[in-house]
């Protein structure tokens, strides 16, 4: 297999996901098959080929640093699952 159970668990941790036993099993198998398929790319000679990350060539899109109309705090925070006094509330970080 191209990817082990342990690697799936490790990557899931990096991605802040919690997988159960069934998921680990299914994902290792499915992702293994997909990674094997990716090996077809090794048939392509890419020596000296520049990588493309964007299909349209644009230089940096600069603009003046000006204050424009923006959402007020209440609206910006309206979808927060938990908040208090204008702050986002999260579980205790420092013990």
């Amino acid at each position: 297999m191209k990817i082990t159970r342990e690697e799936v668990i490790h990557v899931a941790r990096l991605a802040r996901l919690e997988l159960d036993e069934t998921d680990i099993e299914t994902f290792s198998h499915q992702i293994g098959t997909i990674l094997e398929y990716f090996d077809t790319l090794n048939q392509v000679d890419t020596q000296g080929v520049k990588p493309t990350s964007h299909a349209i060539f644009l230089t940096n899109a600069f603009r003046e640093d000006e204050i424009k109309p923006h959402l007020d705090r209440e609206k910006a925070m309206a979808n927060a699952p938990e908040k208090e006094n204008g702050y986002f509330l999260v579980p205790r970080v420092i013990g």
């Binding site: 890419t46 080929v49 493309t52």
Partner: peptide, 10 residues
């Protein structure tokens, strides 16, 4: 590698 092959596809 994928980004390089993307160049070739373009």
């Amino acid at each position: 590698k994928a980004s390089q092959v993307r160049t070739l596809i373009m």
